[in-house]
């Protein structure tokens, strides 16, 4: 991996995505470098979640290329499952496995995908659970956790796979307002530890304080991107300005 420094973590070229006749992504180009935190903001329907879901092929791009650490995942010969192992994903609806307890949620993919021993998987799980501050919840079932706790478990579950990068799809949008903070705190500490992150979010305060770069999307295109201060405080485009005036900053 001598060329690691020159390889982007995520590189997106001319990405188009149609749902039927509807063009949701109209030629997206952008890159995320290792250890970078990129926040994607924009009004609902702008295509930002679709873009994120294309990055680990939960959606199939209609055309264009997506390179993950130099590997083209739009190539039909690429083993998508292998690439996904290196990409952690956190969903708006948490999507914990309700039939498994927290330990089960954290170990099942380690066991079945990475073929770790039970002991090793549990050790990693305990470590990651501690990292999100929920060590005492090992034996709870998801239904008995608050939304914030569920989302932290979901983050821990993704971390158990030792991903090279993490995708967050509006990770705090389904939470009660008083629970948003605990999840953002975990995300922030991850960023500080140098995790590569692509974050679709409506939390402008988080974007300002944590992001290395902010990307504003609207109508299926990247309108502008840059350092948080310049995008959030001094946007070039009218559309960006209008959007920002409509969202309250936390």
């Amino acid at each position: 991996m001598s060329d690691a420094a020159s390889t982007h973590a995520i590189e997106i070229d001319e990405l188009h995505k149609y749902f039927g006749d509807l063009e949701v992504l109209k030629g997206i180009d952008f890159v995320v470098d290792p250890r970078d935190v990129v926040c994607v903001i924009g009004p609902s329907g702008s295509g930002k979640s679709t873009l994120l879901r294309c990055v680990n092929r939960l959606e199939d791009p209609t055309s264009g290329r997506i390179l993950i650490e130099g590997v083209d995942i739009t190539d039909p010969d690429t083993d998508v499952d292998a690439v996904r192992r290196r990409i952690g994903m956190v969903f708006q609806q948490f999507n914990l496995f309700p039939h498994l307890d927290v330990m089960g949620n954290l170990t099942i993919a380690q066991r079945r995908v990475l073929h770790r021993s039970k002991g090793e998987a549990q050790e990693v799980a305990a470590q990651m659970l501690d990292r999100v501050g929920l060590a005492e919840k090992v034996r709870e079932y998801p239904a008995r956790l608050s939304g914030g706790q569920q989302q932290r478990v979901a983050i821990a579950r993704a971390l158990c796979m030792n991903p090279d990068m993490m995708l967050f799809d509006e990770a705090t949008s389904a939470l009660d307002p008083e629970l948003v903070g605990e999840v953002l705190a975990v995300m922030r500490s991850l960023a500080e530890e140098g995790m590569t992150m692509m974050v679709v979010t409506h939390e402008m305060g988080f974007a300002r304080r944590v992001a290395d770069r902010v990307v504003f999307m609207d109508g299926g295109v990247v309108v502008e991107e840059g350092p948080p201060a310049s995008i959030l405080d001094d946007p070039t485009h009218d559309r960006t300005r209008r959007f920002l005036s409509q969202v309250a900053e936390r």
Binding site: L58, D81, R85, F91, Q93, R112, V113
Partner: peptide, 25 residues
Amino acid sequence: RGQLEAARSLGMTQARAMATIVIPQ
């Protein structure tokens, strides 16, 4: 649907995700 997506995003194959996550539920 999110259950299958979560399982796939952890690197499980379609068959594995069905067998360990979707079908038990």
